[in-house]
Design a protein around this nucleic acid. Sequence first.
DNA 1: GGTAGACCTGGACGC
DNA 2: GCGTCCAGGTCTACC
Length: 289
Amino acid sequence: MELQLPARPPFSFAAVADSHGWRQLAPFGGDRDALSYVLRLNAGRVIELHLAGAGDGVRVAADGEFAAAELSEIAATVTWMFGLDQDLSAFYAAASGEPKLAQAAAGGKGRILRSPTLFEDVVKTILTTNTVWGSTKRMVANVVGLFGDPLPADPARRAFPTPASLAASDEATLRQAARLGYRAPAVLELAQRVAAGALDLEGLRTADLPTPELRKRLLAIKGVGPYAVANLLMLLGRYDAIPIDSWALSQVSRGFHGGAAIGPAEVEAAFARWGAWKGLAYWFWQWAD
DNA sequence: GGTAGACCTGGACGC
DNA sequence: GCGTCCAGGTCTACC
């Protein structure tokens, strides 16, 4: 099976793949020019998608035969993951006079790689907090390996777990076997609420909510604080928030304050002039190093 | 509203 | 090989 999915130009497959570290997390595989992703379709079938750039869009390939409904689901999933229908022309127009953002427009940067579900993105975001990237990769790999459905052609590879699969686990297993540590209760509670229908996380992807209300709902999730909510808002296409972590403080300190100690307010102030686009301006800013 | 301390893991470091 | 220290956001208790 092969699909060609068009994107609103400008588009760069490698730029989306490199937009942040998500492609290094299971069940992604491959490199910036050719990604793979083990996807569990809604009906439970587990497949491996092979994704690559093709002109102004994405080429999707997978082994096997697919029904029309499955093809439609795959197309919608990849369109969401790569933000193919996003219109960032206003951001490029705003950034046109800024040398530090010149490479963004020229390189087709602006889209941020997403997971197929907001559930997966929330879990992964929680697993990025208060730890180093190597631990995040390990924790995500553990969760996928322990609770994901296997790919029939290669059972060692698995899809990201469903909320029900994680909800059926327990805190001790998540703490010790998956090595989530103190994050285990947060991930378990999230999975249980989504699996029970108490939290419609996927509905938030397309909800026509003002950003402050969306922020409020995401902040209500255990384990999601100011940094995590800003990261999730970026993934949801709301760019008026900056995910301020220790790296952001370090970069803004060096780039705007000569290395002096700063706090979140200084990061916000440094990008305030970009308004609704300040998150993207920060994300794709060309830092000295 | 602001602040301090606990939470947990794994890497770096010293012995 | 072992023990100690530290970095990394969020949560809770307290002022």
